[in-house]
Amino acid sequence: MNFFRLLGDLSHLASIFILLHKIQTTRSCRGISFKTQALYVAVFVTRYLDLFFRYVSLYNSVMKLFFIASSCYILYLMKYKYRPTHDPSIDTFRIEYLLGPCFVLSLIFNYKFSFSEILWSFSIFLEAVAILPQLFMLQRTGEAETITTHYLAALGVYRALYIPNWIYRYFTEGLVDPIAVTAGIVQTGLYLDFFYVYFTKVLQGQKFELPA
């Protein structure tokens, strides 16, 4: 564990608490893509299957359980409790265009051609693009509640911090995880446009609005 990874994980935790806070205080999941949230459940369930056969640390296990449980809970809130506030007509990204290629990629790029390793690769690739339905929705509506942008920023910062973590691990442990690094760089890259607007507008006290 190093500083960057810990900070990244804390940022990930923060993003989930911000999202829960947004849903519960506004009593609405307006502006949140159900598809992205569903993809995160798929990501966590497929990646953290190793809870059953690999022990890393208490920290690791607790975080994994938290990410699975919280993502399922968010899905429940969106699907049942605050269902009327979710508008599927603007959440129209075709996720099969993500699931298919990620599955094919995981068959080609994996560390071992086994069920659990293929699922692990799949989850890494899927996580990299899981935010696309959300960003697509943002693009369509052209604006977002400030708290929603804080959620997205925390989520983006989490992945961005994994990059210095990998650099640090390369120099201190000689460790390189090409699949995670490649997917992680792509994932962080997807946030660049968003970050630009977030830093130049939202953090200056303005509303998140995309140019028409």
Partner: peptide
């Protein structure tokens, strides 16, 4: 060894 990867990250 990559085939024995530990996946210790989240």
């Amino acid at each position: 060894d990559a085939s024995d990867s530990k996946h210790d990250e989240l």
